[in-house]
C-alpha cells in the first residue's frame, strides 16, 4: 500500500515568508489538507488577518479575503451570510483575535455564525516585532514587557477557548498544539472536525492552536517547541471545551 506525503494542491507553490520553525507554516498545511480531504476547496473562502499571516492570501490556493486587524469574524460573517454554502474560515493570531478583535470573535460565537476560526496562539505579537499579547504568559519577557509580564500591572493571559465555550452559539471549541507530531495529528483531526461541522451547517467552531514564535521568543525553533510543551500547555490546557455534536 503506497504512502505518500506531499504538499496538497490547496497550498500554492509560493515559498512561505514565515521565520524558520514558525508554527504558521504547519497550520497552513493542516488547514489546507483538512479542506482538501473534505473536498471543499471549490467552496472555501479564507479570511486572513493583520499579523504575520496577513500574507496567507498568497499561500492558500482558494478564494481569500483579507480583513482589517481584528475584524475577520465580521468579514467572515458577511461572506457566510452572502454565501451560506461556502466553507468560510477566519485565520487569526492572538493579537488579532484576543486583543483588538475580542468583540468580533465573542459576537460571532454569540450569534452562532456558521464559520470556523483558526486561532493561532503564540503568546506574542509576531509581525510587529515581539510585543506582549493578551495571551503572553505572566513573567514572559517581550518587547513591551521587558521585565516579564506583571499580572498586577496588566493582568493574566486570556483563555479564549474557556471563555467562548460559555456561549450558547459556540458549537465546537477545542485547543490543540504543535509541539509533537502526535499533537500535530490531533490538531489536524480537530480542525477537520470543525470544518465538517460547518459543512453540516452547525454553529460557530473555533480551534485554538498553540504555536511558537522562535524569533521573538529569542529561541531556536526546537527550543521554542520545548518551551511551548513546558510552559504554554500548563496554562492553556489542551482538549475539547465544547462539542455540541458529541453531546
Amino acid at each position: 500500500m503506497a504512502i505518500e506525503y506531499k504538499q496538497t494542491q490547496l497550498l500554492t507553490d509560493v515559498p512561505r515568508h514565515y521565520c524558520p520553525g514558525c508554527g504558521h507554516g504547519i497550520i497552513h498545511r493542516l488547514v489546507a489538507e483538512a479542506i482538501d480531504e473534505l473536498d471543499a476547496g471549490a467552496k472555501a473562502v479564507g479570511v486572513s488577518p493583520v499579523g504575520c499571516s496577513v500574507f496567507a492570501n498568497n499561500y492558500f490556493n482558494f478564494d481569500m479575503v483579507n480583513a482589517l486587524h481584528g475584524r475577520a469574524p465580521a468579514v467572515g460573517t458577511g461572506i457566510k451570510r452572502a454565501r451560506p454554502d461556502a466553507l468560510v474560515f477566519t485565520y487569526q493570531g492572538d493579537g488579532d483575535l484576543a486583543s483588538i478583535g475580542a468583540a468580533e470573535v465573542v459576537h460571532a460565537a454569540m450569534r452562532g455564525e456558521k464559520i470556523t476560526t483558526i486561532f493561532v496562539n503564540n503568546a506574542i505579537y509576531g509581525m510587529t516585532g515581539g510585543q506582549m499579547a493578551p495571551t503572553t504568559l505572566v513573567g514572559q519577557k517581550t518587547a513591551t514587557s521587558p521585565n516579564g509580564r506583571d499580572a498586577d500591572w496588566c493582568g493574566s493571559p486570556i483563555r479564549i477557548c474557556e471563555m467562548l465555550s460559555t456561549l450558547e452559539g459556540a458549537y465546537y471549541i477545542a485547543r490543540v498544539a504543535l509541539d509533537t507530531p502526535a499533537h500535530i495529528n490531533q490538531a489536524k483531526k480537530t480542525i477537520k472536525q470543525a470544518f465538517k461541522y460547518q459543512l453540516e451547517g452547525k454553529g460557530y467552531c473555533l480551534i485554538e492552536v498553540l504555536s511558537t514564535c522562535p524569533t521573538n521568543w529569542g529561541m531556536s525553533p526546537v527550543e521554542a517547541m520545548d518551551w511551548l510543551s513546558e510552559n504554554m500547555i500548563a496554562y492553556y490546557p489542551l482538549g475539547v471545551f465544547k462539542d455540541k455534536g458529541a453531546m
Binding site: A67, R71, A74, V75, T77, G78, K80, R81, A82, R83
Partner: peptide, 10 residues
C-alpha cells in the same frame, strides 16, 4: 462596515 466588506467581497 466589516460585514459589508465581507458580503461585498462575494
Amino acid at each position: 462596515i466589516n460585514m459589508v466588506y465581507g458580503a461585498a467581497s462575494t
